[in-house]
């Protein structure tokens, strides 16, 4: 998967690195979110370097999903700065560089659609506004389907698939756009062990091709070996940012208000804290 060179835009007003190779694919500072007047996320920072696999972990309701959704513009921020590939989120138009796998919901659409139709819809950011899908679109969709191992099922309606197969369809849809950053919200939810292992292999292949991955999970499970860094969110704050094997897991939400949050590793590409 080719990684297109980063276009150099105007220098951002924040001390983000500007050299192409070092420009983080995602750079978020002080992200604060309120939903219905209730604070959900307070001044969270998140940085992802090129080729890095970062997992955002946390208990239910900790704000981990909100952090990731805010960084791609699905949740409005009350404060904070987000840059994607060096461009402020508000001005980011190069949408084909971003692949998104939402949380799988049981609310299926009202009309059947095949695996291939759903995956092809992932090409929208690269397609012409009007006109049928071009050969490049169809080939990219087929490659993405092959990558997740669903080629034999590509003409099946997604409603006939198992949970793991459905999840792989959504991942293929995100990969069809040949993204430089793949964002996945709880990709292991309702997925069998074999699909979990397959996902870990897919992530490895993507990273080898230069893609960065940001994922939200309760528990890394089969993905643990491929994750470079874990960010733990607790009560809307970043409680840990460091190697996944030293990340606090079970106990973190039991003692949220005692002492300073643990911060074992300095954030890469960061200025003065």
């Amino acid at each position: 998967m080719p990684v297109t060179p980063e276009p150099t835009g105007p220098v951002p007003p924040h001390p983000a690195p500007t050299r192409d190779a070092e420009t983080p694919v995602l750079w978020a500072r002080g992200v604060t979110v309120e939903l219905g007047g209730r604070p959900v996320l307070a001044e969270a920072d998140l940085t992802i370097a090129r080729g890095e696999v970062v997992a955002v972990l946390g208990a239910n309701g900790s704000g981990k999903s909100t952090l990731v959704r805010a960084t791609i513009g699905l949740v409005p921020r009350r404060a904070g700065t987000v840059e994607l590939f060096g461009t402020p989120l508000e001005r980011f138009r190069d949408r084909s560089r971003l692949g998104y796998v939402p949380q799988r919901s049981s609310n299926a659409a009202g009309v059947p659609a095949t695996v291939r139709e759903v995956v092809l819809s992932g090409r929208l950011a690269r397609r012409r506004l009007v006109g049928p899908a071009r050969r490049a679109d169809r080939e990219a969709a087929d490659r993405a389907i092959e990558l997740v191992g669903l080629t034999e099922l590509r003409r099946r309606p997604v409603t006939e698939l198992s949970g793991g197969q459905h999840q792989r369809t959504l991942i293929a849809r995100a990969l069809a756009t040949q993204p430089d950053l793949l964002v996945m919200d709880e990709p292991l939810a309702g997925v069998d062990a074999a699909s979990g292992q397959a996902l870990a292999r897919t992530v490895e292949e993507l990273v080898e091709a230069g893609t960065s991955v940001l994922l939200v999970e309760h528990d890394l499970g089969p993905l643990a070996p491929v994750v470079d860094r874990a960010v733990v969110i607790d009560h809307g704050r970043v409680a840990f940012d460091g190697p996944p094997d030293t990340a606090p897991s079970e106990h973190v939400h039991h003692h949220p208000h005692t002492g300073e949050p643990r911060r074992l590793e300095p954030l890469p590409h960061e200025g003065v804290l």
Partner: peptide
């Protein structure tokens, strides 16, 4: 008929369509 790909994407998964820049 002209907007079918976009309409399909929006009706199938609104959030994914939004992230795709639709």
């Amino acid at each position: 008929l002209a907007a079918t790909p976009q309409l399909f994407a929006v009706c199938q998964d609104e959030e994914h369509a939004r992230v795709s820049g639709v």
